[in-house]
Structure formats: structure tokens, C-alpha cells
Nucleic acid binder design. Structure first.
Lengths: 241, 241
DNA sequence: TGAACTAAGTAAACGCCGTTCACACCGTAC
DNA sequence: GTACGGTGTGAACGGCGTTTACTTAGTTCA
């Protein structure tokens, strides 16, 4: 009956507990406080025991990042459901606002996942979507598939076409790798261009706001953020909401 | 004659050497390799001696960040001189391209200065322009003062006016704190809005590119970056270069 | 010139850290 | 019941930031 043995249950429970304590340490005291010894201390075991679960501290942090991404994606999906609108623009806005809201509420998680210089710089040639833009892709992808109207009006500059065409393949394979079916007609250069623009602006604003790195102290960036959304919508040929 | 004593000369030399070795370690091996002991080792002294120069490792890294910002600002100013054009748009483009180029060539420095979660999150109320947007302000400020035409065409959304008005004061004081004289007419809500937009997009694109965090692998982001510049210029009411 | 003072550097130590290794333990499987 | 493999331990290594007491050497001033 029990396909899972006692040991497997215990192992799963311990692994979960490790990640929970690691996450708590991250939230409460920041990335540097997520030490193997601290986690082990809270679990009532010794540090070397953690090596039965993760190859290194780096490994654990990577896994933690993935978990956080999953949480974020789940939260954004939830908001998308709860808003319950079929309007394309409303959905996109919901995701963008949700992302900003999440980042402001979880600055340390955001820093770990979205601003860690861990990724090797001149890195590998293959697609690197590990624990980052996959969230963006996973949410925006279906939206793009649903309404290819995104980027229907403002077309990408003519001379950028070939450049984006190659990216088009990479994007398609990234989507399929994520298990998302994308109709080819939704992946024209314009769509790719638009997607990149959304992501860069959204990320830029949110990162600057979370890190308090605007050139001066912005008291409330809500308005600025909304104006950015309006701009994007306008440029994408979607009516103002 | 020698107002500076022998000790002062030695001290200054040692301090310089410390920063040089720290910088080298950062460039070659990353932030984590910038340890007090490693620096001391290379200097042929012991680690505690460094405490005669810096209060802590954190202090040293902060100072290093400031140095890097100075270098960056100098480099951008140099490019601005060497391009030798009076065209406003050309100057702005030069700065933006220079910033991207610098970031790609100095990823570790970029990460230290522009993507370190060091800044306390919910931080202090005062202006925080420490070692970050000051570069942007310092370069773009004079450009804004010179040609208030920036943001002359595309006006900020009407409802964002009051919001930006308060930022206007903060921006003015930030400029004066940087020793930059800004004519008040160059600091209207539109200008502030435009400045923030430039900074957020520039930062967003560059950070994503440096960290390789676009949702998929962008082979050459040159074209995309240029299209972003074109967009910004277009929106700011400046003709294409 | 020589004595008082000050700043730079040292050695030792404390308490962290990640990681490795030999070893004990116990659930599992034959 | 015995052999095996996964789980946790304890000790240890080397490295880290930082503190403290101490030596050494440059400066200052009578």
C-alpha cells in the first residue's frame, strides 16, 4: 500500500523543513544569514547532515530561489484568477501590478532571485531561464497566446527584424520547454520586441524601487508605475483601461 | 615646505594600495573574494592593520563602490568630450551607450554598485543618492539644464503632476547637493517624469543584459538597446539622430 | 637632543563559517 | 538474520571578520 517507505517520508519532511527554515532566515535576516549551521541549529541537527540533502550552500540557495519563483508564479496566477476579467489589458496589468506588489512586500526574496550576480556573466550558450524570467514567461506567455493583439499596432523597427527573428526561435523553444503551447503567429518579431520591452521596463522600475535606487527619494512610486503601465499599453496599441 | 609629513604620505600610499588590490580582487574574482585577509596578504601586512584605514569590510566595499562610481562618471564625461557634438540628443545617447558599454565590460563592478541589496530596504527618509543614481544625475543633470527641451513634447500624465511636484523639490535639492546648478524651469514635472523614465529603462535593460536575465538568450542586444534609445528619443520629442 | 605622545602594524585569540571524512546507527531488502 | 545503504554525528581543516593587548616607529615640543 504504502509505496513510500518510512525513510522516504522522513526524508521528504526533513527536506521541507530545511527549506522552510532557510526561507525564514532569508526573509527575516537576509541572504547572508542563510548559513548551513544556522539552519541545522534550528532543525536540531548538525551542519554536515545538510549535505545529505544539498550538495552545497550554493545548491540550497538555488533551490530556494526556485521555490520562491514558484510561490511568485502561484500568487500571480491567483490574482489573475481572482480578478476574473477576460479583458486582455486588465490581465496584463494585473500581472505587472502583482509583480511590483510582491517585490515590494518581499524585498529579500526579490534580491535573491532577481538581483543576484550568481549567474555566470559571459555564461553558457544555452537558454538560461532557470529561476528568473520563467515567471514572466510563464504568466505572460499564455496571455500572448490568447491575444496576439499585443504589439499589433506599434511594430518593431524594421532594422531589428532579423535580429529578433533568431530570438523568436529561442523564445519558442523556451515556451515549449515551459510546457506552454504558443501558436507561431503570436511570436512575430513585433511580439518578441514588445515582450522584451515590457519585461525590461517592468524589471527596471521594480528593481529601482525595491532597492531605493531612484536618483532621489520617490515618496510614492505608485503613480509613476501606473504611468509606465499606461505608456506600455498605449505603445502596444491597447486602449487605456 | 613639506606640509605633509612622512607618515601622511605613507598612509595615503597604503590606503591607495588597499583600494587598488581590493578593486583587482573584485574584478578578477568577484565580490566574495574581496576579503580583508586576502587584501592584507597581497599588501604583505596583517588583516587587523586594515582597521586603521576602514572601520569594517562593509566600509571598504562602500568606499570601493564610490570609487567605481567616480571612475564611471569620469569615463562617461570623457566620452561626452570626445564625441564633441553639441547636439543634445547625441550627448544623451552617448551617455546611455557609454553606460551600457561600461556595464558589459565591468560586470562585477556593476553588480557591486548597481545590484547590491546593501541599501536598507525601508530605509531612511533622507535623500539616498550615495553611490548610485548620482552618476546618472551628474551626467544627465547638466544635459537637462542645457536643453530643457527634454520632455518638451510628451507631457506627463495630468494626474501625476502633484506627485512629481514633491519629487521636483527632492530632485532640485539633489542637484544642488551634487553641486549642479539647475534652472528651475528645467525641472518641471515633465522633465522629472522624463528623467525617471530614462533611468528606469536604461537601468532595466542594462541590468537584464549584464546578468543575462532576459527571458531567453539574447544573442546580440545591441539592436534592442538602440531601439530603446530611439523610443525614448521619440517620446521625449527629440528627432531621431 | 631627548622625552612624551601618537599612529601603524603585529600576534593571538574568539566565534563564526563551508566543507570533508571516518564512523555509528537504523530502516530496508534479500 | 544478515548485508547494505541512507542518515546523522563529531572532529577537524582552513578561512573569515573582528577585538584586544602589545610593540614599533614617526612626530612634536621643550
Amino acid at each position: 500500500m504504502a509505496e513510500v517507505t518510512r525513510r522516504e517520508r522522513l526524508r521528504a519532511a526533513t527536506e521541507l523543513e530545511i527549506r522552510q527554515h532557510a526561507h525564514r532566515l532569508l526573509v527575516q535576516q537576509g541572504q547572508d544569514a542563510v548559513t548551513l549551521r544556522a539552519i541545522a541549529r534550528e532543525l536540531g541537527i548538525t551542519a554536515p547532515a545538510l549535505y545529505r540533502y544539498y550538495g552545497s550552500r550554493e545548491d540550497l540557495l538555488r533551490r530556494l530561489g526556485k521555490d520562491i519563483c514558484t510561490d511568485l508564479a502561484t500568487e500571480l496566477d491567483g490574482k489573475l484568477d481572482s480578478v476574473g476579467s477576460d479583458d486582455h489589458l486588465t490581465k496584463v496589468f494585473t500581472v505587472c501590478r502583482g509583480f511590483r506588489q510582491w517585490a515590494l512586500a518581499h524585498p529579500r526574496e526579490f534580491a535573491l532571485v532577481f538581483a543576484s550576480p550568481t549567474g555566470e556573466i559571459g555564461g553558457d550558450e544555452q537558454i538560461r531561464q532557470d529561476e528568473f524570467g520563467s515567471v514572466f514567461l510563464g504568466i505572460l506567455g499564455p496571455l500572448m497566446a490568447e491575444g496576439a493583439s499585443l504589439a499589433s499596432s506599434e511594430q518593431a523597427p524594421a532594422d531589428i527584424g532579423p535580429e529578433l527573428a533568431t530570438n523568436q526561435e529561442a523564445l519558442a523553444s523556451a515556451f515549449s520547454h515551459e510546457g506552454i503551447e504558443m501558436p507561431p503567429e503570436a511570436l512575430g518579431p513585433d511580439a518578441v520586441h514588445s515582450l522584451l520591452r515590457w519585461w525590461a521596463r517592468l524589471y527596471g522600475h521594480v528593481a529601482l524601487e525595491v532597492f531605493g535606487r531612484f536618483p532621489f527619494d520617490i515618496r510614492k512610486a505608485d503613480r509613476l508605475f501606473e504611468s509606465i503601465l499606461s505608456e506600455l499599453a498605449h505603445e502596444a496599441g491597447l486602449g487605456e483601461s
